[in-house]
Computed example of a mutant assay.
Amino acid sequence: MSRSTTAESVDDPIAYFVQDVGYHGKTERTQAAYERVLRQFEAFLSEGTARDQTGVSIPEATHRDCMEWVHSLRADHAGSTVATYASYLHRFYGYMTQVGVLDANPMTLVVDQIEESIDTDPARREISLEEMQEFVQGITHPLDRAIVVTLLKTGLRVGELCNLDVRDVNIATDGLDAEMDVRPQLSGQLNTLYVSPDPSRGERTNGEERTASNKRKRQTVVPVDEELESVLVEWLAIRPDPVSDADPLFVSTGDSWGHRLTTDMAHTIVTEHAEARGWYRSGGGAAENVTPHYFRHFFTTHLRSETGDRGIVKYLRGDVAEDVIDTYTHNWGDRVRETYEESIYQLL
């Protein structure tokens, strides 16, 4: 891979990227973490790879060089750390490609393979759709039901759920006191939910400092079916007045009345219901416990089976970038909605 002939000449792509990360508002700690990992990758390449033992530069690296580096990390790091380091490199290449300093992102295929191995976990508890329906129907509290149904219907990560503001949802509000003031991205798109890649822990989004990060690669517009619309309207009808001017969609009805729901609160709500069902025990692992992340696994497994379209499922999960979407169809939004509505399971 060579640099684009139309791009500005950049002698040190890593320094360029880290500086831009700072311009975008990332903390010095985040900048340092990016630079540390990227310098490790640069040093790995310079020492030579299986493909080229004389050494490889960052612009020249291929997906095989990246795969070799990721594999080398596994000897000394936990799987979660390996995935984090891989995501740093993926973001670096993705950004540098977007601004025209580098020609392509060799990490796209590598990250896809890493996620595939993580998502396909045969050790997880198997719960049938009928069992999940009984579980959901047994939840009567409007907040608890809205949390569980939203997670199951969208495949959101729990942090992404907690970061939702009312402006991120466009649904019919007949019977509610006020109309919803939605994002421009949702204008004219009724029954949709917007998930932004922007919120980051410790940084401000929509005027509020966030306690969780969204881990999406791109913005995602997720369809809202009639069941999800119904539980959200039910929740909004009794939702306490939010403390934050950001108008969070989900707020506490407990000791932190009116404050944005945190990931710990959401986790507790889910696991208490799961424990009552016999699906959770303290000290149990992912193989047996049902947590908010289990619902993402359930969503992914069922939609992959029903749609047979991994691209659309990856889009809904937030795992696919804009350039990949462009290879599918110019009418992407309609295709996603049609496929989703034909395939999404009923819970109530």
Rank of each mutant, 00 (worst) to 15 (best):
E288T: 11
T62C: 01
D255Y: 03
G94V: 07
M132V: 09
G284F: 01
A7N: 00
L176N: 03
E306L: 09
K153R: 15
A123N: 05
D245E: 09
D165N: 13
K215C: 10
Y345M: 01
R36S: 11
A287H: 04
E227N: 12
K215P: 09
K217P: 02
M1P: 03
E116C: 05
L347M: 12
T27N: 06
M132F: 15
Q137E: 11
G258D: 10
M1D: 07
I269F: 04
G159T: 13
P197C: 13
P248V: 01
W257Y: 13
R216T: 14
V21F: 00
V111G: 01
R277F: 07
A50I: 08
T150E: 02
R310T: 13
Y345R: 07
S57L: 03
Y23H: 11
T6G: 02
T84L: 12
D247G: 05
W257C: 01
H24W: 14
V149Q: 00
E342G: 10
T97P: 03
A50S: 06
I312C: 00
A321K: 01
Q31I: 01
E126R: 15
T120L: 03
G202S: 10
V224T: 12
V136S: 12
D112Y: 06
T62Y: 00
A43E: 10
I269W: 08
